[in-house]
Lab assay of single mutants.
Amino acid sequence: MDVFMKGLSKAKEGVVAAAEKTKQGVAEAAGKTKEGVLYVGSKTKEGVVHGVATVAEKTKEQVTNVGGAVVTGVTAVAQKTVEGAGSIAAATGFVKKDQLGKNEEGAPQEGILEDMPVDPDNEAYEMPSEEGYQDYEPEA
C-alpha cells in the first residue's frame, strides 16, 4: 500500500510541476504579447503594419512553449490582441483601416495563427491545408 501511495504522490508532483510550467509559459506569452502591443503603439504610420505582424510573430513563438489545451486559448487571445492593436492603430490615425491585415508588401496577414497546427491532446499534428499553395516548377 505504501508503494501505491508513494507512486500516487510522485504522479501528483509531476502534474503540479507540469501545471506550473504551463502557467509560466502562458505568463511569458502574455508578456511578449504586451511587449508587441507597446511596440505597435510606438510606431509611426509606416511601421504600424509591420508592428502588428511582430506582435503576432512574438506571440506565436511563445505559444510553442505552452502545451496542451492552453495553446488553443493563448492563440485565440493573441489573435484578438493583434486585431485590437490594429483597431487602436486605425482609431489613433497611425494607419488607414484599409491597410490593416496586410503586410508591407500588401499581402493579407489573416491566418497567421489560424494555420498553425495545434492539437490540445498532444496526440497528432496535421499540416495546414494546401489550398493556398501553388506547385513550383523550376525553369529549365
Rank of each mutant, 00 (worst) to 15 (best):
N103K: 06
K43H: 04
A78M: 14
V55F: 07
E110Q: 03
T59K: 01
T59G: 08
N122Q: 07
E105G: 12
E20I: 11
K34H: 03
Y125F: 15
E123T: 14
A29G: 02
Q99Y: 09
K58C: 05
G93Y: 09
V3M: 07
V63H: 01
P138H: 04
K34R: 07
V26E: 00
Q134C: 11
Q62M: 11
S42N: 13
Q79S: 07
E130F: 09
V70N: 02
V77S: 02
N65R: 09
A53T: 08
A140H: 08
K80F: 15
M127Q: 10
V71M: 09
Q109E: 12
E57P: 02
G7Q: 04
G106H: 13
G36Y: 14
K23I: 04
K96Q: 07
Q109R: 07
T59P: 01
P128Y: 04
P128L: 12
A85L: 14
A29L: 09
A89N: 03
G93V: 03
S129T: 09
G73W: 10
L38E: 02
G68N: 06
K45C: 14
V66P: 01
A90S: 08
G47I: 11
L113T: 12
D115M: 10
S42P: 01
E57I: 10
P138I: 05
E114T: 15
K21V: 08
I88Q: 02
L100E: 06
N65P: 01
G106V: 05
K80P: 02
E83H: 08
E114Q: 12
M116H: 12
G31V: 04
E61W: 15
T64G: 07
A56I: 11
E139P: 03
G132P: 04
M127P: 03
E114G: 14
F94G: 02
N65S: 08
A78W: 15
T81P: 02
K96M: 13
Y39I: 08
G67L: 13
A17G: 06
K43C: 06
A30L: 14
G84R: 12
P117H: 08
A11M: 15
K80Y: 09
G31A: 03
L8V: 05
Q134A: 06
V15Y: 08
Y133Q: 07
E46F: 10
G84K: 12
K58Q: 03
A69Q: 05
L8M: 06
V15I: 13
T81H: 02
M5E: 01
M127Y: 10
Q24K: 09
Y136Q: 10
S87Y: 14
A56Q: 03
N103L: 05
E46A: 15
P120V: 05
Q109F: 12
Y136G: 06
E105N: 10
A91V: 12
Y133M: 08
K10Y: 12
S9H: 07
K58R: 15
A107C: 07
V74N: 01
A29H: 02
A17K: 13
T44Q: 00
T72C: 13
F94K: 05
E104N: 15
T59S: 05
V52G: 01
G93N: 05
E61N: 12
V15P: 00
K32P: 00
H50M: 13
Q79M: 13
T44A: 08
E137L: 07
T44P: 01
A107I: 06
Y133V: 05
Y136K: 13
A17C: 11
A53P: 01
P120E: 06
E28L: 10
Q62S: 13
E123H: 09
V71R: 10
E110W: 04
A124Q: 07
M5K: 12
E105T: 09
A27Y: 15
E13P: 00
Q134D: 06
D115N: 12
G132I: 08
